[in-house]
Write a protein that binds this DNA or RNA. Sequence first.
DNA 1: GGCGATCAAATCGCACACGATTGAAACCGC
DNA 2: GCGGTTTCAATCGTGTGCGATTTGATCGCC
Lengths: 153, 153
Amino acid sequence: MTDAPPETADIRIEDFLCFAVYSAGHAFNRVYRRPLERLGVTYPQFLVLVALWGEDGVSVGRLGEALSLDSNTLTPLLKRLEAMGFLTRRRSHEDERRVVVALTDKGRAAKGEAGDVMRCVFDAVGLPAPQFARLTGELRALRASLERAAAAA
Amino acid sequence: MTDAPPETADIRIEDFLCFAVYSAGHAFNRVYRRPLERLGVTYPQFLVLVALWGEDGVSVGRLGEALSLDSNTLTPLLKRLEAMGFLTRRRSHEDERRVVVALTDKGRAAKGEAGDVMRCVFDAVGLPAPQFARLTGELRALRASLERAAAAA
DNA sequence: GGCGATCAAATCGCACACGATTGAAACCGC
DNA sequence: GCGGTTTCAATCGTGTGCGATTTGATCGCC
């Protein structure tokens, strides 16, 4: 009936799933901030690097697909990462519309430092691996539902 | 070991809990956008209204505590809601440092329209109420862990 | 081969988030 | 009471997100 349990007459924002997701996201951002300072990148920039460590040499669009972001967000972010020397942006030859994003040596090397960062965050989460994976899966399903609904509208 | 399942040699951002939370948050934002257009507010502004429907006449600090936001984010947001006539901001008489935020008639009336909005979103989530509540609780616990870790650092 | 539709990235404008700083009010120990 | 500390909100600068639009390249249909 509502985003909160349906019967709540008195509204408590803590019972809203959307708020739980919203505030957990901010909390992640805050936990990542400190360890990422050593790398010199922001949390969204770090996510872009993670995506590229998984699949390098992709177009802006493909990257946006992986991250659920559009070029209006990615273009300036990628320009900052390029200015810092983590990656390069080059027009594709086969299709001049596309811009191919590729890690530099520095960008690949950062993967090593990232281990420490992720160890930090894993400790902060403090969840055993199975529950960790289950929660991740449930959120992925939630996102899929929401995206389906947003596309239908 | 990492934010992803520890053994993954090939990195997949989809396996990161932080990313699952991050992208689910964006998905919520996108689902809320359309229904909230009729109300004329953004998703964060809506969350402020939800918080005030639960507890009206509170200071900026108290509101920030409920929403995990600071005055640097809330002040401009509250000014916009005030300009739109949803609430008032007045210096407290007992303590001149505080600014008390209170809903106007329009702000209270919006609670009626919000029912439709939340029905929309609940359908988009498509989860039975018990799982809904459980997931909310798990995320609340996750946030608490992350905030504890961030405070310790 | 030519032209409208489509597609990819960039650009623009606005609204969050948040670290850092500022300024004013209240508190506190003496 | 009075000066230092703490608290509260506001301000500033930077970096996302995202709707809307623009620019340029490709595709499709003839």
